[in-house]
C-alpha cells in the first residue's frame, strides 16, 4: 500500500498500535505475549540466533498460539547478551540477560506458561526514552 497522506499513515499505525502498549508498558490484548530477542551483530555473535530458534521451537512444542517471537535491535547491554525482553499482557516487561538455548526454554515454560519470573536472570534496565 502506498501512503499518500497523514491519514493513510494513521490507519497503519492504528492497526499496529497494540505492539506499542505491550512493549512499552505491558498493556496489550488479553492473553497476548511477545518475546523480543536482540539480534544485532553483537547479539548474534553471542548466540542470539540460537536463542531465537530455541524460543520458537519451544513455543511450537508447547502449542502456544498467542506468543510471538520478534527479532529486534539491541539495547546496548553488550555485557549481558544475548538479551531478551518478555512482554506478557498485564505485566511489566521483563528483561533477561545471557539467554542461551536452555534458558530460552525455561523462559517459555516458566515465565510465559506459569507467570513465574526467572529471578536470577533478570536484567535491571534503567532508561527513559523519547
Amino acid at each position: 500500500m502506498t501512503i499518500r497522506s497523514l491519514d493513510d499513515l494513521a490507519k497503519i499505525r492504528e492497526e499496529n498500535k497494540h505492539k506499542v502498549g505491550l512493549r512499552e508498558s505491558g498493556q496489550g490484548k488479553e492473553g497476548a505475549a511477545e518475546i523480543l530477542v536482540g539480534m544485532t551483530t553483537c547479539g548474534i555473535a553471542t548466540g542470539a540466533k540460537e536463542t531465537l530458534e530455541a524460543l520458537t521451537e519451544e513455543i511450537k512444542a508447547q502449542s502456544l498460539e498467542n506468543v510471538r517471537v520478534v527479532p529486534v535491535g539491541c539495547i546496548g547491554y553488550c555485557f549481558s547478551e544475548p538479551t531478551v525482553q518478555v512482554n506478557v499482557s498485564g505485566e511489566k516487561p521483563v528483561f533477561y540477560s545471557k539467554v542461551d538455548e536452555e534458558k530460552a526454554k525455561e523462559i517459555v515454560q516458566k515465565h510465559i506458561m506459569n507467570k513465574e519470573i526467572l529471578k536470577d536472570s533478570v536484567l535491571e534496565t534503567d532508561y527513559g526514552k523519547a
Binding site: 512499552e24 529486534v72 539491541c74 539495547i75 546496548g76 538479551t83 526514552k129
Partner: peptide, 8 residues
C-alpha cells in the same frame, strides 16, 4: 536509540 531493541 529510542526504538533500538523495541521494534523489528
Amino acid at each position: 536509540l529510542r526504538n533500538s531493541g523495541l521494534i523489528d
